[in-house]
Write a protein that binds this DNA or RNA. Structure first.
Length: 587
RNA sequence: GCGCCUGUAGCUCAGCUGGAUAGAGUACUUGGCUUCGAACCAAGUGGUCGGGGGUUCGAAUCCCUCCGGGCGCACCA
């Protein structure tokens, strides 16, 4: 509806341009919005105020000219000029009623644009937590936001693919595999001290026990062996030595067994956790696959090598102190970055360049990365690398999600995976429920710092606005089931002329807004707009519910009101689905 | 020190590309169930939009500056 009305105004402006009232080359930014106050009608525009100066006219005078130039339309009841020159427009009743039939017709697709109607492919990557431990509440935010954004973009007509980048290569994974081995040693009664910079979580010890059951003490070393390699070393260097010891003791095959056990177990855990949170992916992309040989098995060429070679072919890579550096400063980064270390090993940055090249080569128009805000310093270098490789960095959009700072008993809870001291997403889901957790996360816009008070989340879970919205849906369901119990038949109608009370008008307006909200929220990457919309819609429903009796009214009025309820039920459902929250029949 | 995010009601937060008296929830004070679910509705109290400048018909919104929080500044991932 908004678009149709806006179009009418655009026609009027064009008309004035041909008449010469407005200069033909004048650029017009037509701002056309719903009003905040009823007296101002349904929609308003300030276009006369904006153009007055250029047209050398009094704003009200110009507004009058625009109004006079408006073509006839059945949608418009009347148009006012108010204040300094606002044009207020009142929508005709019949046009307002039309939304009921629109919803009925489109049902679960109301407000949802046609599949891939934007003809634009988007790759959306989110969470991508290292598979070194279970997801914690910090990841939960990225999960809820990313998934809701994916649904939202799809609803807005984009072709969206959701992807999880599995960081299964690199040192962290070696530390994890080694941690399991050390726990295995403990299970075998080798009285070692478990290093602080290894993964502390219980799940590691469990896996160590599993390996002991499987291998017995076949892959055991003594304390002296470990002391021999770690003596006089800083913790990090000592850890590297232990990793090397693990690899040489276990041999390639058995080490891989430890590695895969840890990886698969944790990844499975992450997968079920996310699936339980209604977060689903189209693709789980393995970082290791970037290191797999291309062509013959013995080939030294892989996607990471390829990417580096491409960079070497430009002028943006140079060698210094044994390492290869990328001149990201040429593209505005703070300093140059290493892609190949002096020992020849590629950095994480190197595989990330390869990964993004891979994404681009898969033919997406836009690649969206959702990262934790602590990675923000990383954005310029990735964009720089893409630019150096002659790709358009604008195709990559990095959305930063601020950290959720966790409080328990008023104390800040640290959230490092390494220390094992964190609150799992699974625990949160268990305690407050999926719907409440998702709503709570999505409600806040991503760049807002979030204080997550666990006690509050628990104690206030009953006050979570999600229930307010779900209750509205359940209430409607109850009205219909009660009608059925009482043997009241609800007939289809196309006449809604009796729906003229204030609460009905508010509800009709709210329903009509939904498609606009979906588009606006998608455009801004802001699923939180949906949650606020849903609260408003639920409020309109609850007010209506308290103001009217549905089943006791006479048949014709009842049919009309029930049609409005049906439409509201549908839109509540559609909105909740967008943020991955259920719409219960009863609560 | 530099960079990114942030500062709106007691608390948690909205406020779209500048627009008409700054909005919700919560808390607090009232009123509303013999009725389709009161997990609800209605009304009220509560704000120098962090401070100060500037831009203009008009600023919470844009620019400058200062102050206060969070995060980041590795041959880690």
């Amino acid at each position: 509806m908004k678009q149709d009305l806006q179009h009418i105004f655009e026609q009027a402006i064009e008309q004035l341009k041909t008449e010469g009232t407005i200069a033909a080359d004048q650029s017009v930014k037509l701002i056309f919005d719903r009003t905040k106050q009823k007296e101002h009608g349904d929609f308003a525009t300030n276009v006369a105020l904006m153009l007055a100066k250029a047209a050398k006219m009094n704003p009200r005078e110009l507004a009058q000219k625009i109004v006079d130039a408006l073509p006839e339309s059945a949608l418009i009841q009347k148009v006012d000029i108010a204040g300094p020159g606002f044009i207020n427009m009142f929508v005709a009743d019949d046009a307002k009623f039309a939304v009921i039939d629109s919803v009925k017709q489109a049902s679960e697709n109301y407000g949802i644009a046609g599949k891939n109607s934007k003809n634009h492919r988007i790759l959306l990557e989110f969470v991508s937590a290292n598979p070194t431990g279970p997801l914690h509440v910090g990841h939960g935010r990225g999960a809820a936001y990313g998934d809701a954004l994916g649904r939202l973009l799809k609803a807005a007509g984009y072709d969206v693919q959701k992807e999880y980048y599995v960081n299964d290569a690199g040192r962290q994974m070696d530390i994890l595999a080694t941690s399991v081995w050390l726990r295995y040693l403990q299970a075998a009664d080798v009285g070692i001290n478990f290093p602080e910079n290894c993964y502390q979580g219980d799940y590691v010890a469990d896996m160590g026990a599993v390996q002991f059951k499987k291998f017995g003490d076949k892959h055991v070393v003594t304390i002296t062996d470990i002391d021999a390699v770690t003596v006089d070393k800083e913790p990090d260097a000592a850890l590297d030595a232990i990793i090397a010891l693990a690899k040489s003791t276990l041999g390639e095959t058995i080490y891989e067994d430890f590695f895969q056990l840890a990886l698969q177990e944790i990844l499975d855990d992450i997968r079920t956790d996310l699936a339980g949170f209604s977060v689903d992916y189209d693709e789980w992309f393995s970082e290791r696959s970037l290191f797999q040989s291309i062509g013959s098995a013995e080939s030294n060429i892989n996607q990471v090598v390829e990417a580096i070679d491409k960079l070497k072919a430009t002028d943006y890579l140079y060698q210094e102190k044994g390492a290869w550096w990328f001149k990201s400063t040429e593209f505005g980064d703070e300093k140059d970055r290493v892609v190949l270390r002096d020992n020849g090993a590629p950095t994480y940055f190197a595989s990330d360049i390869a990964y993004h090249l891979n994404k681009f080569n898969r033919g997406f128009d836009t690649c969206i990365d959702i990262w934790g805000a602590d990675h923000h310093g990383y954005v310029p270098r990735v964009k720089a690398a893409l630019q150096a490789l002659n790709e358009d960095p604008e195709r990559l959009k990095v959305l930063l999600v601020q950290f959720a700072i966790l409080y328990r008993n008023g104390e800040k809870v640290p959230m490092s995976t390494r220390s094992g001291e964190f609150v799992k997403l699974a625990e949160l889901r268990e305690e407050v429920g999926n719907d409440a957790a998702r709503f709570y996360y999505v409600q806040r816009k991503p760049e807002q710092h979030m204080d997550f008070d666990l006690d509050l989340a628990k104690s206030q879970s009953n006050d979570n606005p999600v229930y307010y919205v779900q209750y509205a849906h359940a209430r409607i369901c109850r009205v219909f089931s009660t009608a059925q119990e009482r043997g009241i038949t609800v007939d289809e109608t196309i006449d809604y002329s009796q729906l003229t009370s204030e609460t009905e008008e508010t509800l009709l307006t709210a329903l009509a807004k939904f498609p606009e909200v979906v588009q606006a929220a998608a455009k801004a990457f802001e699923p939180h707009q949906i949650t606020y919309y849903l609260r408003d819609l639920a409020n309109a429903l609850h007010s209506y519910y308290n103001a009217c009796k549905f089943l006791d009214s006479e048949a014709e009025l009842r049919n009309q009101r029930m049609a409005l309820l049906r439409a509201t039920q549908q839109v509540l459902n559609n909105g909740l689905t967008l943020i991955g929250v259920s719409a219960p029949q009863k609560m």
